[in-house]
Simulated assay, not measured.
Amino acid sequence: MRADGTVRRRAAQRRRDTPEILVTEKDMWVSTVHPRHGPHQVTLWFRWDGRAAWMCTGAASATARNVRVEPRVRLALPDTFDGVLLQGEAECFPDEDVPAAAAEAFAARFGGDPRAEEGACLCLCLCVVPKSVLAWRGTPEPRGRVVMGDGTRLGRGTAASHP
């Protein structure tokens, strides 16, 4: 335990904690970039399905425009103390192409189906299967933050540290 009361977790405990954190959180920072216009960051509601983060945004939004040109994204939970940072590529689903199970689960969690919006806010759903996931709690966990690398959840005995 550190002077601030933070208990350092082992990497195996972080790997067990991270999926629960992803299931319980509702907001995520989504960072995208456009080759000419530069970086863009916004918070979106998300749903973790155990494999991927699902988010919805306006089809004409800067986020949607950016991922159509450059699908690589970085996602971060808003809690900087109990941090989770995901990196992957966003797959775009116009509202009519969103898998029914994903749309229904998203609607059940947030109380409405964004595909039903009318007008200029036509929906684009993004699905990000992370290629890497970093997780940490406070400053006493500098090593072993990588809980997933190259699209594979790291298992016991893997000695990965922050790149």
Rank of each mutant, 00 (worst) to 15 (best):
Phe46Arg: 00
Arg8Tyr: 09
Ala11Gln: 09
Pro94Ile: 11
Trp136Tyr: 15
Ala90Phe: 03
Arg16Gly: 11
Gly5Ala: 11
Pro163Leu: 13
Arg153Ile: 14
Thr24Cys: 08
Val129Leu: 13
Pro130Lys: 01
Ser161Leu: 15
Arg47Val: 02
Lys131His: 05
Phe110Ala: 03
Arg145Leu: 11
Glu104Ala: 08
Arg137Val: 08
Leu85Gln: 04
Gln41Lys: 13
Thr6Lys: 02
Lys131Val: 12
Met28Ser: 02
Leu75Cys: 14
Ser161Trp: 07
Thr18Gln: 02
Thr32Cys: 08
Gly5Lys: 05
Ala90Leu: 09
Val33Gly: 15
Cys123Gln: 14
Pro163Ala: 04
Leu134Phe: 11
Ala107Ile: 02
Val146Tyr: 01
Ile21Leu: 14
Asp82Leu: 12
Arg143Asn: 12
Met148Ser: 01
Met148Leu: 07
Val73Leu: 13
Gln87Glu: 15
Thr63Gln: 04
Gly149Leu: 05
Ala3His: 12
Ala101Thr: 11
Leu134Ile: 08
Glu104Gly: 10
Trp54Leu: 01
Asp49Asn: 05
Gln87Asn: 14
Leu134Pro: 01
Ser61Ala: 08
Arg8Ile: 07
Arg15Asn: 03
Trp136Ala: 02
Ala100Tyr: 12
Asp82Lys: 13
Ser161Asp: 13
Glu118Arg: 07
Glu117Gln: 14
Cys92Val: 08
Gly5Tyr: 04
Arg137Pro: 04
Leu154Asn: 00
Thr80Ile: 06
Lys26Ala: 09
His40Ser: 10
Leu75Ala: 12
Gly157Glu: 07
Ser61Trp: 14
Ala102Cys: 11
Val33Lys: 14
Leu44Ala: 09
Thr139Asn: 15
Cys127Ala: 12
Ala120Phe: 09
Trp48Lys: 01
Ala105Leu: 10
Phe106Ser: 01
Val133Tyr: 00
Ala135Glu: 02
Val147His: 02
Val67Arg: 01
Arg115Ser: 01
Gly58Gln: 05
Asp79Cys: 07
Thr80Asp: 06
Ala108His: 15
Thr6Glu: 03
Glu89Gly: 07
Pro94Phe: 04
Gly155Gln: 13
Thr6Asp: 03
His162Ser: 12
Thr43Trp: 06
Asp82Glu: 14
Arg156Gln: 15
Cys56Tyr: 13
Arg14Asp: 02
Val42Tyr: 01
Pro94Asp: 10
Gly111Asn: 03
Glu91Gly: 05
Met1Cys: 07
Glu20Val: 14
Ala64His: 08
Ala52Tyr: 04
Pro35Cys: 14
Arg65Trp: 09
Leu77Arg: 00
Met55Ala: 09
Val23Tyr: 06
Ala100Asn: 13
Ala11Cys: 11
Asp49Ser: 10
Asp27Trp: 11
Gly138Pro: 02
Asp27Lys: 04
Gly157Asp: 09
Phe106Lys: 00
Pro99Val: 05
Cys92Arg: 05
Glu25Ser: 14
Val128Cys: 09
Arg109Gln: 09
